[in-house]
Simulated scan of single mutants.
Amino acid sequence: MTDSVATPAPPHPLLAATGVRKVYRTGSVEVTALRGLDLTVERGELVGVMGPSGSGKTTLLNCLSGLDDIDGGLVEVDGRDLFAMSDAERTEHRARTMGFVFQAFNLIPVFSAAENVELPLLLVGTAPREARARAVEMLGRVGLGHRVGHRPSELSGGEQQRVTIARALVARPAVVWADEPTGNLDSAMADQVMDLLRTLNRDEGQTIVLVTHDEAIGRRLPRLVRMRDGRLVADTARAAAVG
Rank of each mutant, 00 (worst) to 15 (best):
Asp69Cys: 07
Asp69Ser: 13
Ile70Gln: 12
Ile70Tyr: 10
Asp71Arg: 05
Gly73Trp: 06
Gly73Met: 08
Leu74Asp: 15
Val75Leu: 04
Val75Cys: 07
Glu76Ala: 14
Glu76Gln: 14
Val77Met: 14
Asp78Ser: 14
Asp78Glu: 12
Asp78Gln: 11
Asp78Ala: 15
Gly79Ser: 12
Arg80His: 13
Arg80Pro: 10
Asp81Asn: 15
Asp81Phe: 11
Leu82Thr: 05
Phe83Trp: 09
Phe83Glu: 09
Phe83Cys: 04
Met85Leu: 13
Met85Ile: 10
Met85Thr: 06
Asp87Ile: 01
Ala88Arg: 15
Ala88His: 15
Glu89Ala: 11
Arg90Gln: 05
Arg90Ser: 01
Arg90His: 00
Thr91Ile: 03
Thr91Cys: 08
Glu92His: 15
Glu92Asp: 15
Glu92Asn: 14
His93Ala: 15
His93Phe: 15
Arg94Leu: 07
Ala95Leu: 12
Ala95Ile: 03
Thr97Val: 08
Thr97Asp: 09
Thr97Gly: 10
Met98Leu: 04
Phe100Val: 05
Phe100Gln: 01
Phe100Lys: 00
Phe100Met: 02
Phe100Pro: 00
Phe100Gly: 01
Val101Leu: 08
Val101Asn: 11
Phe102Cys: 02
Phe102Lys: 07
Ala104Phe: 15
Phe105Asn: 00
Phe105Tyr: 13
Phe105Thr: 00
Asn106Leu: 04
Asn106Pro: 08
Ile108Tyr: 04
Pro109Asn: 06
Pro109Lys: 06
Val110Gly: 12
Val110Cys: 12
Phe111Val: 02
Phe111Glu: 01
Ser112Cys: 03
Ala113Gln: 08
Ala113Ser: 14
Ala113Glu: 08
Ala114Tyr: 03
Val117Leu: 03
Val117Met: 03
Glu118Phe: 03
Glu118Ser: 11
Leu119Gly: 02
Pro120Leu: 00
Pro120Glu: 02
Leu121Ser: 03
Leu123Ala: 09
Leu123Ser: 09
Leu123Thr: 06
Val124Trp: 01
Val124Ala: 02
Val124Gly: 01
Thr126Val: 13
Ala127Arg: 14
Ala127Trp: 03
